[in-house]
C-alpha cells in the first residue's frame, strides 16, 4: 500500500525491570558463609579428576561425580589474564576505568574474575602474584573481597 509511506515510522523506547533473588544452594552457601564469617575462600575438589574448582559446585564438570568436600584455596593467587576497562556500562559494578583480572588462587585449577587495584596498569603482568583485600563489613557475596592487589 503506497499510502503507508506518508507515515513517519513509529518507534518507542521502553524497558523491562525484573527483580530476582538467586539462591546459592549447598556448595555456594558454604562458600559464602566461609568468606563472610571467616575470610576463607573455598573450592570444590574432585578426587577423581584431581581438580579443584572455583566457583565451588556439587557436581564435577568433567566426570559428573558428586562433590561433597570443600577445601581452602588461596588467599594468594596469580594473574592469568587482565584488561583495563575504560568504558562505562550500567551493569558494571563500579565506574571506569578499572583493571579487571582473572586470578588463579593457589590450590585451584580455575580462575576467579575480580578487580585488581593499588597498582598502575602498566605494571600489571601475567604471572603477577596478588592477594585479596576483604571488606570490613561482609555480607555474603563476592564483593566481600573488595579487590586483589599485588604482593
Amino acid at each position: 500500500m503506497d499510502d503507508l509511506n506518508q507515515y513517519q515510522p513509529f518507534e518507542v523506547d521502553q524497558h523491562l525491570t525484573a527483580h530476582g533473588n538467586y539462591w546459592a544452594g549447598r556448595a555456594g552457601s558454604r562458600f559464602y558463609r566461609a568468606l563472610r564469617d571467616r575470610r576463607r575462600i573455598l573450592g570444590s575438589p574432585c578426587r577423581n579428576c584431581r581438580k579443584v574448582f572455583w566457583p565451588p559446585r556439587s557436581i564435577c564438570t568433567f566426570c559428573f561425580s558428586e562433590l561433597r568436600e570443600m577445601v581452602e584455596i588461596g588467599p594468594l593467587g596469580t594473574v592469568e589474564t587482565f584488561t583495563l576497562v575504560t568504558y562505562a556500562e550500567p551493569v558494571h559494578p563500579r565506574p571506569a576505568p578499572f583493571i579487571y583480572a582473572v586470578i588463579r588462587l593457589d590450590g585451584a585449577d580455575t580462575g576467579m574474575a575480580h578487580f585488581l587495584d593499588e597498582v598502575e596498569y602498566e605494571r600489571v603482568h601475567v604471572g603477577m602474584r596478588v592477594r585479596p583485600v576483604f571488606a570490613p563489613q561482609r555480607k555474603g557475596n563476592i564483593l566481600d573481597i573488595l579487590y586483589f592487589k599485588p604482593l
Binding site: 507515515y7 525484573a18 527483580h19 530476582g20 558463609r33
Partner: peptide
C-alpha cells in the same frame, strides 16, 4: 542458605513496522 538479590533493567527500542505505524 545464602541468597543474592538482583534487579535487571532491560531497555529496548521497539519498531512498530509500516502497518502498525499507520
Amino acid at each position: 542458605w545464602i541468597s543474592i538479590p538482583m534487579t535487571v533493567d532491560v531497555p529496548y527500542r521497539f519498531a512498530a513496522g509500516r502497518y502498525l505505524t499507520k
